[in-house]
Write a protein that binds this DNA or RNA. Structure first.
Length: 572
RNA sequence: AGCCCGAUAGUAUAAGGGUAGUACGACAGAUUUUGGUUCUGUUUGUGGAGGUUCGAAUCCUUCUCGGGCUACCA
Protein backbone atom coordinates (compact mmCIF):
# COMPACT_ATOMS: atom_id res chain seq x y z
CA UNK A 1 0.00 0.00 0.00
CA UNK A 2 2.95 2.32 0.18
CA UNK A 3 5.15 2.92 -2.79
CA UNK A 4 8.33 2.75 -0.85
CA UNK A 5 8.30 0.24 1.95
CA UNK A 6 11.12 0.75 4.35
CA UNK A 7 12.96 -2.53 4.06
CA UNK A 8 15.35 -1.74 6.83
CA UNK A 9 12.59 -1.42 9.38
CA UNK A 10 11.88 -5.10 9.16
CA UNK A 11 15.47 -6.25 9.55
CA UNK A 12 16.42 -3.75 12.23
CA UNK A 13 16.71 -6.68 14.56
CA UNK A 14 14.50 -5.37 17.34
CA UNK A 15 11.10 -3.83 17.83
CA UNK A 16 10.27 -0.40 19.13
CA UNK A 17 7.71 -0.24 21.90
CA UNK A 18 4.85 0.46 19.52
CA UNK A 19 5.69 -2.44 17.27
CA UNK A 20 5.79 -4.50 20.43
CA UNK A 21 2.26 -3.41 21.32
CA UNK A 22 1.05 -4.17 17.80
CA UNK A 23 2.63 -7.60 17.82
CA UNK A 24 1.10 -8.34 21.20
CA UNK A 25 -2.29 -7.23 19.88
CA UNK A 26 -1.96 -9.38 16.81
CA UNK A 27 -0.91 -12.33 18.92
CA UNK A 28 -3.87 -11.91 21.22
CA UNK A 29 -6.26 -11.60 18.30
CA UNK A 30 -7.30 -8.07 19.11
CA UNK A 31 -9.30 -6.56 16.22
CA UNK A 32 -8.71 -9.94 14.54
CA UNK A 33 -5.15 -8.90 13.85
CA UNK A 34 -6.18 -5.82 11.94
CA UNK A 35 -3.82 -2.80 12.00
CA UNK A 36 -5.16 0.56 10.93
CA UNK A 37 -3.29 3.81 11.63
CA UNK A 38 -3.73 7.39 10.58
CA UNK A 39 -1.63 10.48 10.09
CA UNK A 40 -3.68 13.42 11.42
CA UNK A 41 -2.18 16.82 10.55
CA UNK A 42 -3.99 20.07 11.14
CA UNK A 43 -3.98 21.95 7.84
CA UNK A 44 -2.62 25.15 9.32
CA UNK A 45 1.06 24.96 8.41
CA UNK A 46 3.77 23.13 6.57
CA UNK A 47 5.05 19.71 7.47
CA UNK A 48 8.52 19.39 8.96
CA UNK A 49 10.97 16.61 9.70
CA UNK A 50 9.21 15.95 13.00
CA UNK A 51 6.06 15.15 11.06
CA UNK A 52 8.15 12.89 8.86
CA UNK A 53 8.89 10.81 11.94
CA UNK A 54 5.19 10.45 12.60
CA UNK A 55 4.42 9.74 8.95
CA UNK A 56 7.10 7.06 8.72
CA UNK A 57 5.89 5.56 11.98
CA UNK A 58 2.21 5.42 11.02
CA UNK A 59 2.65 4.33 7.44
CA UNK A 60 5.60 2.12 8.29
CA UNK A 61 3.64 0.26 10.93
CA UNK A 62 0.71 -0.42 8.62
CA UNK A 63 3.13 -1.44 5.95
CA UNK A 64 4.97 -3.85 8.18
CA UNK A 65 1.86 -5.53 9.53
CA UNK A 66 -0.28 -5.58 6.41
CA UNK A 67 -2.52 -2.78 7.55
CA UNK A 68 -3.78 0.54 6.26
CA UNK A 69 -3.17 4.20 6.98
CA UNK A 70 -5.57 7.07 6.55
CA UNK A 71 -4.58 10.62 5.91
CA UNK A 72 -6.95 12.61 8.06
CA UNK A 73 -6.93 16.35 8.34
CA UNK A 74 -7.83 17.54 11.80
CA UNK A 75 -9.69 20.58 10.56
CA UNK A 76 -11.79 21.64 13.53
CA UNK A 77 -10.60 25.24 13.75
CA UNK A 78 -11.73 27.10 10.62
CA UNK A 79 -9.98 30.35 11.48
CA UNK A 80 -6.46 28.92 11.15
CA UNK A 81 -6.92 26.33 8.44
CA UNK A 82 -6.73 26.52 4.70
CA UNK A 83 -6.74 24.33 1.58
CA UNK A 84 -3.32 25.69 0.70
CA UNK A 85 -1.97 23.66 3.61
CA UNK A 86 -4.01 20.62 2.66
CA UNK A 87 -2.37 20.61 -0.75
CA UNK A 88 1.15 21.07 0.55
CA UNK A 89 0.69 18.35 3.15
CA UNK A 90 -0.61 15.85 0.59
CA UNK A 91 2.27 16.72 -1.67
CA UNK A 92 4.82 16.23 1.09
CA UNK A 93 3.42 12.90 2.26
CA UNK A 94 3.44 11.60 -1.30
CA UNK A 95 6.93 12.88 -1.86
CA UNK A 96 8.09 10.98 1.19
CA UNK A 97 6.88 7.89 -0.65
CA UNK A 98 3.64 7.09 1.11
CA UNK A 99 0.17 6.59 -0.21
CA UNK A 100 -2.83 6.73 2.06
CA UNK A 101 -5.80 4.42 2.14
CA UNK A 102 -8.37 7.21 2.53
CA UNK A 103 -8.18 10.96 2.40
CA UNK A 104 -10.42 12.06 5.21
CA UNK A 105 -11.28 15.13 7.22
CA UNK A 106 -12.52 15.55 10.75
CA UNK A 107 -14.99 17.94 9.14
CA UNK A 108 -16.48 14.95 7.30
CA UNK A 109 -17.78 13.93 10.70
CA UNK A 110 -19.23 17.23 11.88
CA UNK A 111 -22.82 15.95 11.76
CA UNK A 112 -21.89 12.72 13.50
CA UNK A 113 -19.90 14.59 16.14
CA UNK A 114 -22.86 16.88 16.68
CA UNK A 115 -25.05 13.84 17.25
CA UNK A 116 -22.50 12.47 19.72
CA UNK A 117 -22.74 15.76 21.59
CA UNK A 118 -26.52 15.57 21.74
CA UNK A 119 -26.22 12.02 22.99
CA UNK A 120 -24.05 13.19 25.85
CA UNK A 121 -26.56 15.93 26.65
CA UNK A 122 -29.30 13.35 26.71
CA UNK A 123 -27.25 11.23 29.09
CA UNK A 124 -26.93 14.27 31.35
CA UNK A 125 -23.19 14.38 30.72
CA UNK A 126 -22.95 17.65 28.82
CA UNK A 127 -24.20 21.15 29.51
CA UNK A 128 -24.30 24.52 27.84
CA UNK A 129 -22.30 27.08 29.75
CA UNK A 130 -22.80 30.85 29.37
CA UNK A 131 -19.66 31.75 31.29
CA UNK A 132 -16.97 33.82 29.63
CA UNK A 133 -13.68 32.18 28.87
CA UNK A 134 -12.12 34.09 31.75
CA UNK A 135 -14.75 32.75 34.12
CA UNK A 136 -14.23 29.23 32.88
CA UNK A 137 -10.49 29.57 33.31
CA UNK A 138 -11.00 30.85 36.84
CA UNK A 139 -13.33 27.96 37.66
CA UNK A 140 -10.70 25.49 36.55
CA UNK A 141 -8.73 25.89 39.73
CA UNK A 142 -5.07 25.02 39.89
CA UNK A 143 -3.24 21.71 39.92
CA UNK A 144 -3.27 21.80 43.69
CA UNK A 145 -6.81 23.05 44.28
CA UNK A 146 -9.94 21.56 42.76
CA UNK A 147 -12.05 23.60 40.38
CA UNK A 148 -15.46 25.07 41.15
CA UNK A 149 -18.65 23.92 39.54
CA UNK A 150 -20.13 26.24 36.97
CA UNK A 151 -23.44 27.79 37.93
CA UNK A 152 -24.80 26.45 34.63
CA UNK A 153 -23.76 22.90 35.37
CA UNK A 154 -27.14 21.67 36.51
CA UNK A 155 -29.30 22.96 33.69
CA UNK A 156 -31.89 20.43 32.65
CA UNK A 157 -31.42 18.10 29.71
CA UNK A 158 -34.19 19.88 27.81
CA UNK A 159 -32.69 23.25 28.46
CA UNK A 160 -29.25 22.08 27.35
CA UNK A 161 -30.65 20.46 24.23
CA UNK A 162 -32.54 23.60 23.36
CA UNK A 163 -29.54 25.88 23.87
CA UNK A 164 -27.23 23.59 21.98
CA UNK A 165 -29.60 23.42 19.02
CA UNK A 166 -29.88 27.17 19.04
CA UNK A 167 -26.08 27.43 19.14
CA UNK A 168 -26.04 25.36 15.98
CA UNK A 169 -28.79 27.49 14.47
CA UNK A 170 -26.62 30.54 14.85
CA UNK A 171 -28.66 32.39 17.43
CA UNK A 172 -25.65 33.44 19.49
CA UNK A 173 -22.50 35.38 18.78
CA UNK A 174 -19.00 33.90 19.10
CA UNK A 175 -18.11 33.18 22.68
CA UNK A 176 -21.62 33.55 24.09
CA UNK A 177 -21.99 29.90 24.97
CA UNK A 178 -19.99 26.68 24.93
CA UNK A 179 -20.86 23.05 25.42
CA UNK A 180 -18.91 21.34 28.20
CA UNK A 181 -18.86 17.79 29.49
CA UNK A 182 -19.34 16.86 33.12
CA UNK A 183 -16.32 14.84 34.02
CA UNK A 184 -14.65 15.84 37.25
CA UNK A 185 -13.90 19.37 38.36
CA UNK A 186 -11.73 18.02 41.15
CA UNK A 187 -9.59 15.76 39.00
CA UNK A 188 -5.85 16.22 39.41
CA UNK A 189 -5.77 15.91 35.63
CA UNK A 190 -6.73 19.36 34.42
CA UNK A 191 -7.96 17.94 31.11
CA UNK A 192 -10.82 16.31 32.96
CA UNK A 193 -12.17 19.44 34.66
CA UNK A 194 -15.30 19.79 32.53
CA UNK A 195 -13.55 20.46 29.24
CA UNK A 196 -15.23 22.49 26.52
CA UNK A 197 -16.22 20.32 23.58
CA UNK A 198 -18.02 22.80 21.32
CA UNK A 199 -17.56 26.51 20.73
CA UNK A 200 -19.28 29.06 18.55
CA UNK A 201 -17.26 30.39 15.63
CA UNK A 202 -19.04 32.21 12.86
CA UNK A 203 -16.25 31.48 10.44
CA UNK A 204 -15.91 30.13 6.95
CA UNK A 205 -14.55 26.60 6.92
CA UNK A 206 -12.31 25.47 4.08
CA UNK A 207 -14.52 22.47 3.39
CA UNK A 208 -17.90 22.95 5.01
CA UNK A 209 -18.15 26.61 4.10
CA UNK A 210 -20.80 28.35 6.18
CA UNK A 211 -22.76 25.22 7.06
CA UNK A 212 -21.59 25.33 10.65
CA UNK A 213 -21.14 28.05 13.21
CA UNK A 214 -20.23 25.69 16.03
CA UNK A 215 -17.10 23.59 15.89
CA UNK A 216 -15.91 20.68 18.04
CA UNK A 217 -12.72 21.02 20.02
CA UNK A 218 -9.76 18.73 19.33
CA UNK A 219 -10.57 16.43 22.23
CA UNK A 220 -14.10 15.91 21.02
CA UNK A 221 -13.08 15.37 17.41
CA UNK A 222 -9.88 13.42 17.42
CA UNK A 223 -10.75 10.30 19.33
CA UNK A 224 -14.18 9.98 17.81
CA UNK A 225 -12.71 10.40 14.33
CA UNK A 226 -10.29 7.57 15.11
CA UNK A 227 -13.21 5.53 16.31
CA UNK A 228 -15.39 6.25 13.26
CA UNK A 229 -12.50 5.15 11.04
CA UNK A 230 -11.92 2.11 13.24
CA UNK A 231 -8.34 3.11 13.80
CA UNK A 232 -6.72 0.39 15.89
CA UNK A 233 -3.59 2.22 16.99
CA UNK A 234 -3.79 5.98 17.30
CA UNK A 235 -0.27 7.35 17.60
CA UNK A 236 0.50 10.83 18.83
CA UNK A 237 3.16 12.71 20.69
CA UNK A 238 3.73 12.81 24.43
CA UNK A 239 1.96 16.08 25.18
CA UNK A 240 -1.31 14.25 24.61
CA UNK A 241 -0.73 11.76 27.40
CA UNK A 242 -2.99 13.67 29.84
CA UNK A 243 -5.70 13.74 27.17
CA UNK A 244 -5.86 9.97 26.96
CA UNK A 245 -8.28 9.54 29.89
CA UNK A 246 -10.66 11.91 28.10
CA UNK A 247 -10.16 10.07 24.83
CA UNK A 248 -11.11 6.84 26.56
CA UNK A 249 -13.96 8.49 28.45
CA UNK A 250 -15.69 9.63 25.26
CA UNK A 251 -15.31 6.23 23.70
CA UNK A 252 -16.82 4.60 26.75
CA UNK A 253 -19.67 7.06 27.20
CA UNK A 254 -20.59 6.96 23.53
CA UNK A 255 -20.04 3.22 23.35
CA UNK A 256 -18.17 3.40 20.07
CA UNK A 257 -15.26 1.52 18.50
CA UNK A 258 -12.43 1.35 21.04
CA UNK A 259 -9.47 2.94 19.30
CA UNK A 260 -6.47 3.20 21.59
CA UNK A 261 -4.04 6.05 21.82
CA UNK A 262 -0.29 5.49 22.22
CA UNK A 263 2.18 8.31 22.67
CA UNK A 264 5.80 8.65 21.62
CA UNK A 265 8.40 11.38 22.04
CA UNK A 266 8.50 13.99 19.31
CA UNK A 267 11.67 14.54 17.30
CA UNK A 268 14.04 17.32 18.22
CA UNK A 269 17.04 18.05 16.04
CA UNK A 270 20.21 19.91 16.93
CA UNK A 271 20.81 23.37 15.45
CA UNK A 272 17.21 23.93 14.45
CA UNK A 273 13.76 24.55 15.87
CA UNK A 274 10.68 22.49 15.25
CA UNK A 275 7.73 24.43 16.62
CA UNK A 276 5.33 25.84 14.07
CA UNK A 277 5.35 29.13 15.92
CA UNK A 278 9.10 29.52 15.74
CA UNK A 279 9.33 28.39 12.15
CA UNK A 280 6.68 30.93 11.27
CA UNK A 281 8.67 33.60 13.03
CA UNK A 282 11.74 32.74 10.98
CA UNK A 283 9.74 33.21 7.81
CA UNK A 284 7.91 36.33 8.89
CA UNK A 285 10.96 38.11 10.21
CA UNK A 286 12.83 37.34 7.03
CA UNK A 287 15.57 35.22 8.56
CA UNK A 288 14.88 32.76 5.78
CA UNK A 289 13.39 33.27 2.33
CA UNK A 290 10.27 31.20 2.95
CA UNK A 291 8.87 27.90 4.17
CA UNK A 292 10.91 26.12 1.54
CA UNK A 293 14.18 27.86 2.32
CA UNK A 294 16.78 25.05 2.20
CA UNK A 295 17.81 25.87 5.76
CA UNK A 296 14.34 25.17 7.14
CA UNK A 297 13.57 21.78 8.71
CA UNK A 298 10.33 21.71 6.72
CA UNK A 299 9.84 18.91 4.24
CA UNK A 300 9.69 21.57 1.53
CA UNK A 301 12.97 23.07 2.72
CA UNK A 302 14.74 19.77 3.07
CA UNK A 303 13.56 18.74 -0.37
CA UNK A 304 14.89 21.94 -1.90
CA UNK A 305 18.12 21.41 -0.02
CA UNK A 306 18.55 18.18 -1.97
CA UNK A 307 17.58 15.55 0.57
CA UNK A 308 15.87 12.49 -0.88
CA UNK A 309 12.77 10.72 0.42
CA UNK A 310 14.74 7.52 0.98
CA UNK A 311 17.32 9.31 3.10
CA UNK A 312 14.62 10.78 5.32
CA UNK A 313 12.91 7.43 5.71
CA UNK A 314 16.23 5.90 6.61
CA UNK A 315 16.81 8.65 9.15
CA UNK A 316 13.41 8.12 10.73
CA UNK A 317 14.14 4.46 11.01
CA UNK A 318 17.51 5.02 12.63
CA UNK A 319 16.39 7.50 15.27
CA UNK A 320 14.00 4.98 16.73
CA UNK A 321 10.80 5.52 18.64
CA UNK A 322 10.59 5.79 22.40
CA UNK A 323 9.00 7.80 25.17
CA UNK A 324 11.95 9.75 26.46
CA UNK A 325 12.79 13.26 25.34
CA UNK A 326 15.52 13.32 22.77
CA UNK A 327 17.69 15.68 20.81
CA UNK A 328 18.99 14.01 17.70
CA UNK A 329 22.32 15.07 16.30
CA UNK A 330 21.71 16.60 12.87
CA UNK A 331 24.90 14.79 11.92
CA UNK A 332 22.84 11.62 11.70
CA UNK A 333 20.58 13.18 9.09
CA UNK A 334 23.70 14.25 7.21
CA UNK A 335 25.09 10.75 7.45
CA UNK A 336 21.89 9.36 5.92
CA UNK A 337 21.94 11.64 2.92
CA UNK A 338 25.66 11.20 2.34
CA UNK A 339 25.28 7.45 2.45
CA UNK A 340 22.64 7.48 -0.23
CA UNK A 341 24.11 10.16 -2.44
CA UNK A 342 27.54 8.55 -2.36
CA UNK A 343 26.09 5.53 -4.08
CA UNK A 344 23.85 7.33 -6.51
CA UNK A 345 25.18 10.69 -7.60
CA UNK A 346 27.37 11.42 -10.59
CA UNK A 347 30.63 13.16 -9.81
CA UNK A 348 31.45 16.37 -11.47
CA UNK A 349 34.11 19.04 -11.03
CA UNK A 350 33.35 22.55 -9.94
CA UNK A 351 35.59 25.27 -8.58
CA UNK A 352 33.68 27.18 -5.96
CA UNK A 353 35.43 30.44 -5.56
CA UNK A 354 34.70 34.09 -6.15
CA UNK A 355 38.29 34.34 -7.37
CA UNK A 356 39.49 30.94 -8.44
CA UNK A 357 43.18 30.44 -8.96
CA UNK A 358 44.24 30.31 -12.58
CA UNK A 359 46.83 27.72 -13.34
CA UNK A 360 48.77 28.01 -16.60
CA UNK A 361 50.53 24.92 -17.88
CA UNK A 362 53.49 26.48 -19.62
CA UNK A 363 54.64 23.39 -21.50
CA UNK A 364 51.17 22.59 -22.84
CA UNK A 365 50.68 24.12 -26.29
CA UNK A 366 48.48 27.15 -26.47
CA UNK A 367 45.19 26.29 -28.17
CA UNK A 368 45.62 22.59 -27.60
CA UNK A 369 42.64 20.72 -26.15
CA UNK A 370 42.14 17.19 -24.99
CA UNK A 371 39.02 15.37 -23.94
CA UNK A 372 39.50 13.43 -20.75
CA UNK A 373 37.20 10.51 -20.05
CA UNK A 374 36.35 10.50 -16.37
CA UNK A 375 34.22 7.99 -14.53
CA UNK A 376 30.93 9.35 -13.29
CA UNK A 377 30.81 7.43 -10.06
CA UNK A 378 33.49 5.13 -8.70
CA UNK A 379 30.82 3.54 -6.48
CA UNK A 380 28.72 2.57 -9.47
CA UNK A 381 30.40 0.87 -12.39
CA UNK A 382 27.27 1.15 -14.50
CA UNK A 383 27.27 4.93 -14.32
CA UNK A 384 29.78 5.22 -17.17
CA UNK A 385 32.10 8.03 -18.08
CA UNK A 386 31.81 11.56 -19.32
CA UNK A 387 33.93 13.86 -21.49
CA UNK A 388 35.81 16.58 -19.68
CA UNK A 389 37.72 19.11 -21.80
CA UNK A 390 41.26 19.96 -20.75
CA UNK A 391 43.42 22.85 -21.87
CA UNK A 392 46.46 24.97 -21.03
CA UNK A 393 44.59 27.15 -18.53
CA UNK A 394 42.57 25.65 -15.71
CA UNK A 395 40.92 26.99 -12.58
CA UNK A 396 41.60 25.41 -9.22
CA UNK A 397 40.42 26.22 -5.73
CA UNK A 398 42.42 28.85 -3.93
CA UNK A 399 42.43 26.50 -0.94
CA UNK A 400 44.26 23.88 -2.93
CA UNK A 401 47.42 25.96 -3.05
CA UNK A 402 49.57 27.25 -0.23
CA UNK A 403 52.73 29.23 -0.60
CA UNK A 404 53.99 28.02 2.74
CA UNK A 405 52.40 24.63 3.29
CA UNK A 406 51.96 23.23 6.79
CA UNK A 407 52.94 19.70 7.58
CA UNK A 408 50.76 17.02 6.00
CA UNK A 409 49.47 19.43 3.35
CA UNK A 410 49.44 17.36 0.22
CA UNK A 411 47.94 19.73 -2.23
CA UNK A 412 49.89 22.20 -4.38
CA UNK A 413 52.76 24.43 -3.23
CA UNK A 414 55.78 25.97 -4.92
CA UNK A 415 57.91 23.19 -6.34
CA UNK A 416 55.28 20.61 -5.38
CA UNK A 417 53.37 18.18 -7.54
CA UNK A 418 49.75 17.11 -7.63
CA UNK A 419 47.55 15.26 -10.05
CA UNK A 420 44.79 17.15 -11.75
CA UNK A 421 41.94 14.67 -11.37
CA UNK A 422 41.50 12.56 -14.48
CA UNK A 423 44.29 14.41 -16.30
CA UNK A 424 48.00 14.98 -15.69
CA UNK A 425 50.43 15.37 -12.86
CA UNK A 426 51.66 18.93 -12.71
CA UNK A 427 54.41 20.75 -10.92
CA UNK A 428 54.17 24.29 -9.62
CA UNK A 429 57.10 26.29 -11.00
CA UNK A 430 56.20 29.87 -10.30
CA UNK A 431 53.79 31.98 -8.32
CA UNK A 432 52.59 35.22 -9.92
CA UNK A 433 51.28 38.01 -7.72
CA UNK A 434 49.83 41.44 -8.31
CA UNK A 435 51.03 44.64 -6.73
CA UNK A 436 48.99 43.98 -3.56
CA UNK A 437 50.68 40.67 -3.07
CA UNK A 438 47.67 38.59 -4.00
CA UNK A 439 48.37 35.50 -6.01
CA UNK A 440 46.88 35.87 -9.47
CA UNK A 441 48.29 32.92 -11.30
CA UNK A 442 50.30 29.76 -10.92
CA UNK A 443 52.70 28.75 -13.67
CA UNK A 444 53.10 25.02 -13.83
CA UNK A 445 54.49 22.32 -16.05
CA UNK A 446 52.84 19.00 -16.76
CA UNK A 447 54.31 15.54 -17.07
CA UNK A 448 53.18 14.30 -20.52
CA UNK A 449 53.65 10.62 -19.57
CA UNK A 450 51.36 10.94 -16.56
CA UNK A 451 48.09 11.09 -18.47
CA UNK A 452 45.36 9.52 -16.44
CA UNK A 453 44.74 5.94 -17.43
CA UNK A 454 48.04 5.60 -19.30
CA UNK A 455 50.50 6.84 -16.74
CA UNK A 456 54.03 5.64 -17.42
CA UNK A 457 55.75 8.39 -15.50
CA UNK A 458 56.30 6.31 -12.40
CA UNK A 459 55.66 9.37 -10.31
CA UNK A 460 53.55 9.03 -7.21
CA UNK A 461 51.86 12.11 -5.87
CA UNK A 462 50.08 12.44 -2.59
CA UNK A 463 47.35 14.79 -3.72
CA UNK A 464 44.71 14.89 -6.43
CA UNK A 465 42.82 18.11 -6.94
CA UNK A 466 39.85 19.03 -9.09
CA UNK A 467 39.93 21.65 -11.82
CA UNK A 468 37.89 23.22 -14.60
CA UNK A 469 39.29 24.22 -17.99
CA UNK A 470 39.12 27.99 -18.25
CA UNK A 471 37.87 28.31 -21.83
CA UNK A 472 35.23 25.64 -21.24
CA UNK A 473 34.14 26.70 -17.78
CA UNK A 474 30.54 27.67 -17.21
CA UNK A 475 29.71 30.16 -14.54
CA UNK A 476 27.16 29.24 -11.93
CA UNK A 477 25.80 30.47 -8.65
CA UNK A 478 26.28 28.22 -5.69
CA UNK A 479 24.47 28.56 -2.40
CA UNK A 480 26.42 27.10 0.46
CA UNK A 481 23.99 26.25 3.21
CA UNK A 482 24.97 25.51 6.75
CA UNK A 483 23.02 25.00 9.99
CA UNK A 484 20.53 27.76 10.69
CA UNK A 485 21.44 28.20 14.35
CA UNK A 486 24.80 28.38 15.99
CA UNK A 487 23.68 26.68 19.19
CA UNK A 488 22.78 23.03 19.58
CA UNK A 489 19.40 23.50 21.16
CA UNK A 490 17.96 26.92 20.30
CA UNK A 491 14.56 26.01 21.74
CA UNK A 492 16.10 25.67 25.19
CA UNK A 493 18.13 28.86 24.93
CA UNK A 494 16.86 31.92 26.75
CA UNK A 495 18.53 34.38 24.44
CA UNK A 496 16.67 35.99 21.57
CA UNK A 497 16.44 34.29 18.21
CA UNK A 498 18.57 36.98 16.68
CA UNK A 499 21.60 36.05 18.77
CA UNK A 500 21.24 32.35 18.15
CA UNK A 501 21.12 32.41 14.37
CA UNK A 502 24.20 31.27 12.52
CA UNK A 503 25.33 34.35 10.59
CA UNK A 504 26.92 32.17 7.91
CA UNK A 505 24.03 29.77 7.37
CA UNK A 506 24.02 30.89 3.74
CA UNK A 507 26.98 31.93 1.66
CA UNK A 508 26.46 32.62 -2.00
CA UNK A 509 29.48 32.14 -4.21
CA UNK A 510 30.32 32.20 -7.86
CA UNK A 511 31.48 28.91 -9.27
CA UNK A 512 32.95 27.53 -12.45
CA UNK A 513 31.59 24.17 -13.44
CA UNK A 514 32.49 21.73 -16.15
CA UNK A 515 30.30 21.93 -19.24
CA UNK A 516 28.84 18.41 -18.92
CA UNK A 517 26.94 19.58 -15.88
CA UNK A 518 25.23 22.36 -17.71
CA UNK A 519 24.15 20.11 -20.57
CA UNK A 520 22.64 17.78 -18.03
CA UNK A 521 20.86 20.58 -16.23
CA UNK A 522 19.37 21.88 -19.47
CA UNK A 523 18.10 18.46 -20.42
CA UNK A 524 16.44 18.19 -17.03
CA UNK A 525 18.19 14.91 -16.32
CA UNK A 526 20.21 16.31 -13.49
CA UNK A 527 19.08 15.90 -9.93
CA UNK A 528 21.62 15.43 -7.18
CA UNK A 529 25.31 15.64 -8.01
CA UNK A 530 28.57 15.49 -6.17
CA UNK A 531 31.01 18.31 -6.76
CA UNK A 532 34.17 16.32 -6.24
CA UNK A 533 35.89 17.00 -2.93
CA UNK A 534 33.29 19.66 -2.06
CA UNK A 535 29.95 18.07 -1.32
CA UNK A 536 26.58 17.12 -2.70
CA UNK A 537 24.58 19.71 -4.61
CA UNK A 538 21.26 20.03 -6.36
CA UNK A 539 20.04 22.32 -9.08
CA UNK A 540 17.72 24.96 -7.67
CA UNK A 541 14.52 26.19 -9.25
CA UNK A 542 16.00 29.69 -9.34
CA UNK A 543 18.29 28.56 -12.17
CA UNK A 544 18.07 30.24 -15.53
CA UNK A 545 19.39 28.91 -18.84
CA UNK A 546 22.21 31.44 -18.59
CA UNK A 547 23.09 30.88 -14.98
CA UNK A 548 22.47 27.63 -13.17
CA UNK A 549 22.02 27.82 -9.41
CA UNK A 550 23.11 24.99 -7.14
CA UNK A 551 22.24 24.38 -3.51
CA UNK A 552 24.67 22.57 -1.31
CA UNK A 553 22.88 19.69 0.34
CA UNK A 554 25.75 18.67 2.58
CA UNK A 555 29.53 18.80 2.49
CA UNK A 556 31.67 15.73 2.12
CA UNK A 557 33.33 14.60 5.31
CA UNK A 558 36.50 16.62 5.53
CA UNK A 559 39.39 14.99 7.35
CA UNK A 560 41.74 17.78 6.37
CA UNK A 561 39.52 20.47 7.88
CA UNK A 562 39.35 18.39 11.03
CA UNK A 563 43.13 18.09 11.08
CA UNK A 564 43.43 21.86 10.76
CA UNK A 565 40.90 22.42 13.53
CA UNK A 566 43.01 20.28 15.80
CA UNK A 567 45.89 22.63 15.08
CA UNK A 568 43.71 25.62 15.84
CA UNK A 569 42.68 24.15 19.14
CA UNK A 570 46.29 23.45 20.07
CA UNK A 571 47.33 26.97 19.16
CA UNK A 572 44.37 28.69 20.68
C1' A B 1 2.89 22.66 44.70
C1' G B 2 -0.68 18.38 42.74
C1' C B 3 -1.00 14.79 38.99
C1' C B 4 1.20 12.40 34.83
C1' C B 5 5.50 10.77 31.77
C1' G B 6 10.54 9.66 31.60
C1' A B 7 16.06 8.54 33.01
C1' U B 8 21.16 2.71 29.53
C1' A B 9 28.30 5.24 26.20
C1' G B 10 28.97 12.00 23.43
C1' U B 11 23.82 11.35 20.68
C1' A B 12 20.04 7.98 19.86
C1' U B 13 18.18 3.09 20.53
C1' A B 14 18.03 -2.59 22.16
C1' A B 15 18.44 -6.25 26.09
C1' G B 16 10.89 -7.92 28.87
C1' G B 17 15.01 -11.57 36.08
C1' G B 18 20.39 -14.90 33.41
C1' U B 19 27.15 -12.58 28.90
C1' A B 20 24.84 -4.78 28.58
C1' G B 21 24.39 -5.00 22.35
C1' U B 22 23.59 -1.84 17.67
C1' A B 23 23.91 2.70 14.86
C1' C B 24 25.93 7.55 14.40
C1' G B 25 30.11 10.20 16.53
C1' A B 26 35.17 10.24 18.42
C1' C B 27 40.13 8.09 18.15
C1' A B 28 43.96 4.92 15.58
C1' G B 29 45.49 2.28 11.27
C1' A B 30 45.02 0.15 6.06
C1' U B 31 43.30 1.14 1.07
C1' U B 32 42.35 5.20 -2.27
C1' U B 33 43.74 9.34 -9.09
C1' U B 34 37.89 12.68 -4.23
C1' G B 35 42.00 14.37 2.71
C1' G B 36 35.44 11.14 -0.19
C1' U B 37 34.19 5.89 -0.19
C1' U B 38 35.55 1.11 1.78
C1' C B 39 37.91 -2.01 5.50
C1' U B 40 40.08 -3.07 10.40
C1' G B 41 40.72 -1.92 15.36
C1' U B 42 39.98 1.10 19.95
C1' U B 43 37.30 4.03 23.36
C1' U B 44 33.07 5.45 26.37
C1' G B 45 27.25 3.41 29.61
C1' U B 46 22.67 1.13 33.29
C1' G B 47 21.33 8.86 37.78
C1' G B 48 21.88 8.00 43.73
C1' A B 49 20.54 5.03 48.08
C1' G B 50 18.05 0.94 49.97
C1' G B 51 15.20 -3.70 49.20
C1' U B 52 13.36 -8.59 46.81
C1' U B 53 16.26 -12.63 44.41
C1' C B 54 21.03 -17.74 43.61
C1' G B 55 21.01 -13.69 40.07
C1' A B 56 18.39 -6.84 38.80
C1' A B 57 19.28 -2.13 33.38
C1' U B 58 14.79 -5.02 34.15
C1' C B 59 10.60 -5.94 39.99
C1' C B 60 9.62 -2.80 44.82
C1' U B 61 10.63 1.76 47.97
C1' U B 62 12.80 6.37 48.13
C1' C B 63 15.67 10.45 46.54
C1' U B 64 17.61 13.34 42.52
C1' C B 65 17.20 15.21 37.77
C1' G B 66 14.50 16.20 33.02
C1' G B 67 9.75 16.88 30.55
C1' G B 68 4.33 17.60 30.32
C1' C B 69 -0.51 19.48 32.16
C1' U B 70 -3.59 24.64 34.56
C1' A B 71 -6.23 27.59 25.63
C1' C B 72 -13.54 28.75 23.43
C1' C B 73 -5.28 25.77 19.77
C1' A B 74 -4.02 21.07 18.01
Amino acid sequence: MTEAPNESSTDRGHLNFIEQIVEDDIASGKHRGRVHTRFPPEPNGYLHIGHAKSICLNFGLADKYGGKTNLRFDDTNPVTEDTEYVDSIKNDVRWLGFDWENELYASDYFEQLYQFAEALILKGLAYVDDSTSEEIAAQKGTPTEPGRLSIYRDRSVDENLDFFRRMRAGEYPDGAKVLRVKVDMASPNMQLRDPIIYRIKHAHHHRTGNTWCIYPMYDFAHGQSDSIEQITHSLCTLEFVPHRPLYDWFIEQLNIFPSRQYEFARLNLTYTVMSKRKLKKLVEEGHVTGWDDPRMPTIAGIRRRGYTPASIRDFCDRIGVARRDNLIDVGLLEFCIREELNKTTPRVMAVLDEKPLKLVITNYDEGREEIMRIENNPEDASSGERDVPFSRDVYIERDDFMEVPPKKFFRLFPGGMVRLKGAYIIKCDEVIKDETGEITELRCSYIPESRSGSDTSGINVKGTIHWVSVPHAVEAEVRLYDRLFSVENPAADERDFQELLNPTSLEVVRAFVEPALVDASRSGSLTNVQFMRKGYFILDADSTPERPVFNRTVTLKDAWAKEQNKGEVKKG
